[in-house]
Design a protein around this nucleic acid. Sequence first.
DNA 1: TATTGTTATACTCTATAACTATA
DNA 2: TATAGTTATAGAGTATAACAATA
Lengths: 153, 153
Amino acid sequence: MLTNMPDLSHGGDAIENDAAVNALRSAVMRLGRRLKHQRVDESLSPTEMSVLGTLARCGSATPGELARREHVQPPSMTRIVALLEAKGLVRLEPHPDDRRQKVVSQTEEAEAMLEESRRRRNVWLASLAEGLDEDEWAKLRAAAPVLEKLAHL
Amino acid sequence: MLTNMPDLSHGGDAIENDAAVNALRSAVMRLGRRLKHQRVDESLSPTEMSVLGTLARCGSATPGELARREHVQPPSMTRIVALLEAKGLVRLEPHPDDRRQKVVSQTEEAEAMLEESRRRRNVWLASLAEGLDEDEWAKLRAAAPVLEKLAHL
DNA sequence: TATTGTTATACTCTATAACTATA
DNA sequence: TATAGTTATAGAGTATAACAATA
């Protein structure tokens, strides 16, 4: 009896890809938990950080866009944006064309905080670097953009 | 004023490594959320799946070992193991040498379920494959073991 | 009538603290 | 006295359902 592998259109690496996805899945879950603990700012959840990162890249976005981007339901994003606003990290303005929507953008405080957060992450990075050799780091650097693409595919 | 980069011992890729970690962090958070939704078995949490995966690789382990491996506190692992046992996916036996400890191992049902889960993941994989080219998959395959190493470093 | 965002509520997962049993 | 595991409890984060306002 033949194994039931997917018939991927681009070639014969289906089995290797499957093994990679297996490894990825478990690594992503575990790393996610560690990242939660390694929080740079104790008062900011991972998703809040991620939203700030998105705003830093995109400038501004509506709550709905942010919810889709972060793969979170709209009510959850309402709460997250409200918390960020209460901390003075985002600003909410009315949408110019559609009075149902709002426009969320980051404040100067957020920008400063992201800079500080980057500095602190470097400490964690340096401690991790002990355990990886240069070849492993190279593989990580090469895969990072692919993982990002995968995350919002 | 000089930027405050960490002084990594192995060479001059500190800046690239930092960028990679940034990308990794946000990708891991987002992918984690998507994986939660893409659950193969609706009744199994990501950590439960991860524990089964560990048992499949290691044969058996004590609750304490599993907790350390999954980066979860002992009480959480107690609950997870109890749920898995209730579903008939793991078996608990007394430790041969130490009557405080227990030995957790997977059942035949778990093995069958993991096989089915692998099959279903392939469907998801195939749909994702549309968005990645062969070069990107190659980078992912190369990085997968490094991510696993990072996850339990 | 469809869409954006919000409110109210409940659920899932994990953590901390206190406890039991064994080493 | 220290360690493995458990019980009880609380908290964080997210989801679903029902609703309001606007398109």
